[in-house]
Simulated scan of single mutants.
Amino acid sequence: MEIIEIKRISIATFILLSAISFAVAQTRTWTFDDELCTYTGHYDSKKYTAKELADTYCLFRTSYYVSDKGTMEELRVRYDSVIHHVANLEIVQTNYFLQLKKDVIRYLEETAALKKAEKNAKQDVQSLITAVKEGTDARQYAVALSNGGDDLLEAYKQVVKGQMKNNSTPEYLWYNYQTTMERDDRLDLAFDYVLVYGWWNSANHLVHHITYDGKQMEQFQKLFVKVDTLDCDEL
């Protein structure tokens, strides 16, 4: 009887050690950081790969700023490249991050369309109208830019007055406006000003922007079994 009992204990111990060994083999670590701290996350390798975690981290930690310098073709290539990169990220398949990926692509596509219209404004001013919805400030500015003449100058005046409300030196803005209005090339200058500070600023508000409020990192940390804080910068 004693021999049988010992064998039972040995088998049970073997099973327990095997289970522990299997669990340890499944759990791996991945190091990441936020604005303040560096962390090591312990994750279940049966659920996610290191590649998926890295791509998911990249998804919400990238600013996605795309320069609009250069030619129209250069602008198109840059946006196409970034959109292609995001579309091919191998992220974790949670509802939250799948939706975030769609939102990032939407933001990039909408911004690219506006930037293309802005860059081509003087060659195809009608594109400024079709790029934005009816009933918006951006559409009104687009119409003024298209009409030119007095409509454009009136829009220029309204943009400057709007800026003066939140500027520490409104008199300086008004002085620049009056100086511009005395120039022979005032229509060209007004066009450039209204395009950027009127049309673009208003159109940009219509874009599907993403609020980065810490929720992305919060959701990312939930992917791990445990997260250890390695180091934090002093505040």
Rank of each mutant, 00 (worst) to 15 (best):
H209N: 08
G162W: 10
G198F: 05
V196F: 02
Y175F: 08
A54F: 14
H205V: 00
I83Q: 01
D192T: 02
L187N: 15
D231K: 06
A54P: 10
K115H: 05
R106H: 05
N147K: 15
D44K: 08
D34T: 06
F220C: 13
D124T: 02
A144P: 08
A190I: 08
M164H: 01
D55P: 11
A112E: 01
F14C: 11
F32K: 12
I210H: 01
L16C: 11
Q126D: 13
T111W: 00
L189R: 15
R8S: 06
Q158T: 09
R139H: 15
E234A: 09
Q221E: 13
L187Q: 14
E5K: 12
Q140M: 12
V92Q: 13
N204H: 15
D151P: 01
L36F: 11
S21W: 07
E234S: 08
D192R: 01
S45E: 10
K119M: 13
V77C: 00
L108G: 03
F22I: 13
T62C: 02
Y64S: 05
A138I: 10
T179N: 12
T136P: 00
L206T: 11
I210R: 01
V92D: 07
Y79Q: 09
N166Q: 04
E52M: 14
L75Q: 12
N120H: 04
A87H: 13
L16S: 09
E171F: 05
D213M: 10
I15R: 14
V86I: 13
N95R: 07
Y197S: 08
N147V: 08
D33S: 12
A203E: 04
S63L: 00
L189M: 15
D185P: 02
